[in-house]
Design a protein around this nucleic acid. Structure first.
Lengths: 128, 128
DNA sequence: ATTGACCCTCACATTAATGAAAAGGTTGAT
DNA sequence: ATCAACCTTTTCATTAATGTGAGGGTCAAT
């Protein structure tokens, strides 16, 4: 498919799709005319990329993470770059930290909201 | 304490401490000479700010979140700004989404690492 | 009173992720 | 063959979070 359709299907602006390509995250083929030609599986990948970016993972790191996600892992396992393993393990740990942190603070916000709601129970009020 | 010490204690660059101030996230007193003078409790707050920023929450939003974190919540409950409640609820939901996503992908990376390790079990190898 | 380690403000530079517009080629339907 | 809709590349702009340096006070110790 071409960039416009991929954009519609993923909700990611064409500008960004080109940007991800520039960052080496996706490499669509080109048709005779020069138009980018995307495979179907890239819909999925682009959505993953978006999610990772929205989670605060920089593109530079996403490049390393992508090969691990939802693929027949046996294929890639052979490389076993000594450094890459380290990078991945570190990133995993960073993510775990982030998760811990986010969970903690999300819960704090949540109970604050509960407190708010309870505080105005006197005035017969709403829910989340 | 002065900015240098706060920086050392939190691991956050002085430049950033001034930036957070500019963004209205902290408001240290000034001593006679004009030096910023930070209370002890700000060590904690600064660390929270860092964590939130590292989690991809923009400072603009952190300002709203801060009052909910680890404080005697009764104090703030009175305001009950109708819009603020919405903002907070939305942010909480965004955070929940982020947590879900991060967890999912962290697990993917993790099992990829497991696969890597198993793949080189033949060559007598390491752990995470 | 000078030195060194702090602090101040101001301001310009940089990086990542985007937005946006200019100038032009491709395609498909009429 | 022309028009609209889509594609291309290039370039410049913007925002958030930072780095960095200039130019200059403060202060404690020597």
């Amino acid at each position: 498919m071409r960039i416009g359709e991929l954009s519609k299907r993923t909700g990611v602006a064409t500008r960004m799709l080109r940007y991800y390509e520039e960052q080496g995250l996706i490499s669509p083929r080109r048709s005779h005319n020069g138009y980018r030609d995307y495979d179907d599986y890239l819909v999925d990948r682009v959505q993953k990329i978006r999610g990772l970016i929205d989670s605060g993972i920089p593109t530079r790191i996403i490049g390393n993470i992508l090969p691990c996600l939802g693929k027949p892992q046996v294929i890639v396992v052979e490389d076993a770059d000594p450094e890459l393993r380290e990078i991945l393990a570190e990133e995993r740990d960073r993510m775990t930290e982030k998760i811990r942190f986010l969970t903690h603070n999300r819960d704090a916000i949540d109970s604050y909201l509960d407190a708010l709601d309870q505080a105005m129970t006197g005035s017969r009020a709403q829910a989340s």
